[in-house]
């Protein structure tokens, strides 16, 4: 069911684009992981302080919510890069590997358009939130901050998906194989 290429062997050697994208995706995921990790440490500290009678950390719940939104966005590109979005392969196993690969290429290209559309709308949303000046209730953190990682994550996913889809769609693009 996982997205898996039966003919992974026809992969070309890793090019420069591949290496750069991989670094950026890994970096984003690492930052996202660090954010959610930091949030959990903050909550644990808040729990300990509250039980010691020192008072909890104000806005710890909000911090976790902000961290969740940030990490959801920052995790995306790596998942796209690793072809981690699940699908059901059960009903297409009878097709030839090449046909399957072409189908996956079409869906990956659609995925690229989907992420690009989302990135475009999020940029509008970012503008709106910036204009309204909405802030979270306790931490008074501007809500538009959270839109920055969202915009970054969806836009990068669009780029990754687009570059991945081309060699899957046609041999002409084989040279630029991204994983």
């Amino acid at each position: 069911m996982a997205e898996r290429l039966p003919n992974e062997t026809e992969q070309a050697p890793h090019g420069r684009v591949f290496l750069i994208l991989q670094r950026v995706c890994l970096g984003a995921a690492g930052v996202g992981g660090a954010v959610i990790f930091a949030a959990s440490i903050t909550v644990a500290a808040s729990v300990i302080m509250r039980n010691l009678g020192l008072g909890g950390i104000r806005g710890d719940f909000e911090l976790v919510e902000l961290a969740c939104a940030a990490c959801a966005s920052l995790f995306l590109p790596l998942c796209q890069f690793n072809k981690g979005h699940v699908m059901v392969d059960l009903f297409t196993l009878w097709l030839s590997p090449l046909t399957q690969r072409r189908m996956d290429g079409v869906w990956t290209l659609l995925f690229a358009f989907g992420w690009a559309f989302l990135a475009w709308r999020l940029s509008v949303g970012l503008g709106e939130m910036h204009e309204y000046g909405d802030r979270t209730m306790l931490l008074r953190a501007p809500v538009w901050w959270v839109y920055l990682p969202a915009l970054f994550g969806t836009a990068l996913s669009a780029v990754v998906a687009f570059l991945q889809s081309l060699p899957m769609l046609s041999h002409a693009f084989r040279a630029m194989e991204v994983r």
Binding site: Y132, G133, D134, R135, T136, M137, R140
Partner: peptide, 15 residues
């Protein structure tokens, strides 16, 4: 997105 909404102003502080 909807035509009528029932909302709390405090949910969007300062708006």
């Amino acid at each position: 997105i909807c035509d009528i909404a029932w909302t709390l102003p405090v949910y969007t502080p300062d708006r």
